[in-house]
């Protein structure tokens, strides 16, 4: 995984923590979820979706259904960070994979 991808994951983790202190609303969750879903779709287009991203999205939907928007928003942000890391991985691998080929 690239350093950039790791940084994205770490930053998103921090964001999740700091935002958790404020009470999130449904519209905040909706925005966070839409961003995550969009990133995950992009990862899918690159052939590289991660199962933890899917798990986080599912858990986010569940929490939102139960109106626990703080948790749901944090999960959506986590999913977005994971999806972005997978996008970084896939983009880097577009050329890096050739270096691994047995020659």
């Amino acid at each position: 995984m690239s350093r950039r991808a790791l940084a994205v994951v770490a930053a998103a983790g921090l964001a999740g923590l700091s935002c958790g202190a404020l009470a999130a609303t449904q519209s905040e969750f909706d925005a966070a979820y839409a961003a995550a879903a969009q990133a995950e779709a992009q990862a899918g287009a690159l052939h590289d979706q991660w199962s933890p991203t899917e798990a986080a999205l599912k858990a986010a939907r569940q929490a939102a259904e139960e109106k626990r928007y703080d948790e749901a928003s944090a999960l959506a942000r986590r999913a977005e960070a994971l999806a972005k890391a997978s996008i970084s991985q896939a983009q880097a691998q577009q050329s890096l994979w050739r270096e691994a080929v047995v020659k």
């Binding site: 995984m1 052939h47 991660w50 994971l82 991985q89 691998q93 994979w97």
Partner: peptide
């Protein structure tokens, strides 16, 4: 197919080749 085999994927960042070649 070759690309799929050598490309790292997943959160653990492994390719097929990571395990079954290297």
């Amino acid at each position: 197919g070759k690309k799929f085999f050598y490309e790292r994927r997943g959160q653990l960042n492994f390719s097929c080749a990571s395990c079954h070649v290297q």
